[in-house]
Amino acid sequence: MNGFKMTTRIRLLLGVGTLLFLVVIPFHGSVSATLPLVLWHGMGDSCCNPLSMGAIKKMIEEAIPGINVQSLMIGKTVVQDTENGFFMDVNEQVDMVCSQLSQDSKLASGYNAMGFSQGGQFLRAVAQRCPSPPMKTLISVGGQHQGVYGLPRCPGESSLICDWIRKKLNSGAYTDLVQKHLVQAQYWHDPLNDDLYKKYSLFLADINQERVVNETYKKNLQMLDRFVMVKFLQDTVVDPVDTEWFGFLKMGQAKETETLQESVLYKEDRLGLAAMEAAGKLHFLASEGDHLQFTEKWFNENILPYLR
């Protein structure tokens, strides 16, 4: 890759092992640096892959000169970072990130955060659990905020791992062993076994206030200036796709979905999302294409304004 050109297409590997085709159009503008930006990659990816998160980091830095962009590495090496996206307890990952951010003096006055695929809900957990330094804007790009009930497609380098994960999830997502050692089980949301989910989900049921209402979580999330959620309209990876806008399947069946606004979570305002929407803090964006597929033009027009 010899730099970005008008006619160049680069292939990015992002999120749940999905190929993202980025149509690169150069951005020429003078933009002052704003708050630092923290990125968290998705499953099957790493912090620094030059064809994925590395390219995203470079693209943002070129569009917003002077901005400090940090792409999180979960582990000591890129290999560990990728593996931990499958096998490291999510709560431990969030604790690790909270510690890292709290020790970074560059973030002391606040920062923006952008999570890709599962990195979206992981960064939301950071916002809820770790208010210092303060997260100002959270951008979730294809995040699964109500979890998933299926892993329909996971092509590319991670396909064999995903086949194995499917078997484990289908055979017992809420067993102690699977919950503790499989990341995707920790946001597996079975609408046919809601009681099991609420009782045994180690991560998602906690951050979504499914058992009890943690007022600290609620207060901290509402400290966000903006919570931006991007949904991919032709997504064939995330099931159901409504989870990218905090919707999900109605409980007791696995076909009919409901929006965030129709959910108990919203109606009882267990997480403060209704109050945030009333305050104009929730932003719902849609992108044509499959999971994590967008053009740089779309990114420049729809995402960059939240970072400036």
Rank of each mutant, 00 (worst) to 15 (best):
Q118K: 13
G85V: 08
E92C: 01
L101Q: 03
S117H: 04
M73K: 08
S117V: 01
M114Q: 10
V69F: 11
G119K: 05
N91P: 06
F116H: 07
Q121F: 03
Q93I: 11
E83S: 14
G66D: 08
G66E: 02
G115H: 07
V69G: 07
V78R: 12
Q100D: 04
V97A: 12
T82K: 11
K106V: 13
D95F: 01
D89T: 01
K106R: 15
Q121E: 14
N84F: 12
E92V: 09
F87C: 13
N84H: 14
D89N: 11
S109C: 14
Q118Y: 02
M114S: 04
G120P: 09
E92P: 00
Q70G: 04
V69L: 07
C98Y: 05
D81C: 11
N68S: 13
V69R: 03
N68V: 10
M114H: 09
Q118R: 06
Q121M: 10
D104H: 05
M114I: 13
Q118C: 01
M88R: 15
F116Y: 15
M96L: 15
E83V: 11
M88L: 15
L72P: 07
Q103G: 13
K76H: 06
N91T: 15
G115W: 00
S109M: 14
C98M: 12
S102G: 15
N84Q: 13
S99A: 11
Q100I: 05
S105G: 05
E92G: 07
M114F: 07
G120Y: 02
G115Q: 09
Q80P: 02
K76M: 08
Q103W: 00
M114A: 15
N68H: 14
T82I: 12
M114N: 11
I74E: 01
V94D: 11
M88E: 10
N84L: 09
V90Q: 06
T82H: 09
S105W: 03
F87S: 11
L107M: 04
Q100F: 08
L101V: 06
E83D: 13
E92H: 10
M96K: 05
G119R: 02
T82W: 08
N91Y: 09
G66Q: 09
G119W: 07
D104K: 03
A108L: 11
V97I: 15
Q103P: 02
S71H: 01
G119D: 08
Q118H: 06
F86E: 07
Q93N: 13
M73L: 12
F116W: 15
G66Y: 06
Q100E: 08
Y111G: 01
D104N: 12
Q121H: 12
V90Y: 04
L72Y: 14
S71P: 08
S102D: 14
L72I: 14
V97E: 09
G75C: 09
I74Q: 00
N68M: 00
K76N: 12
Q93S: 14
T77D: 10
Q100Y: 09
Q103S: 15
A113I: 03
V90E: 05
E92M: 10
D89F: 11
I67R: 05
A108H: 12
S105N: 08
G119S: 07
S117M: 02
C98W: 04
N112T: 02
